[in-house]
């Protein structure tokens, strides 16, 4: 390796990493599967089969702040979010779910998935409390690791997405 290559590598290494350099879809999927078994039920499977999300969706997410900063976002149809809530509550699920129950349960799934994603990332990061609502926007399409799955035949997506816009491409003084 030449001196130039070493310097170049260091310069590239100093740049802000994008998520695809840090974690891959297979790891995110295995994290999600473990969360599902623990929270939703041992018999509950997430199938790696992409399906189109309905128009009425709900997202829950946690923010990770550290060497990589972004959000771990779980998105599903509102009805699926309610079914997930019932699965988590099991016998204590009320006949009519309150919005508060869905926010709590759907947020907790994002919290558990996000905590495991955080633990898989290098360096020290902080994790936020979960939020539920409309997903944070994707700021940099290169800084996204998204998996699309189905649960009980309904689409569920998990997006690990950066919070920051893409860095400007450095100007080359010697084109």
């Amino acid at each position: 390796m030449t001196v130039f290559e070493t310097a170049e590598r260091r310069r590239v290494g100093d740049a802000r990493p994008v998520i695809t350099e840090l974690i891959d879809g297979t790891t995110v999927q295995s994290i999600a599967e473990e969360a599902w078994i623990s929270l939703v039920g041992e018999e509950e499977v997430l199938v790696p089969l992409p399906a189109e999300l309905p128009a009425d969706v709900l997202s829950s997410w946690v923010d990770v702040v550290g060497p990589w900063t972004g959000s771990v976002v779980l998105t599903a149809g509102r009805q699926t979010a309610e079914e997930l809530t019932r699965a988590l509550l099991r016998e204590s699920a009320p006949e009519v779910l309150e919005e508060e129950d869905v926010v709590d349960a759907f947020g907790e799934i994002a919290n558990v998935v996000g905590g495991s994603v955080k633990a898989a990332l290098p360096g020290q990061s902080a994790l936020s409390l979960p939020s539920v609502g409309t997903s944070p926007e994707v700021r940099n399409t290169a800084d996204v690791c998204r998996i699309d799955l189905t649960w009980r035949g309904e689409p569920v997506s998990i997006s690990v997405q950066g919070a920051l816009p893409a860095l400007p491409v450095p100007h080359d003084p010697h084109p």
Partner: peptide, 13 residues
């Protein structure tokens, strides 16, 4: 736990 659902899951577990 601030999540009521999670408290129930811990009790169940």
């Amino acid at each position: 736990d601030d999540s009521r659902v999670m408290r129930q899951i811990v009790i169940r577990t």
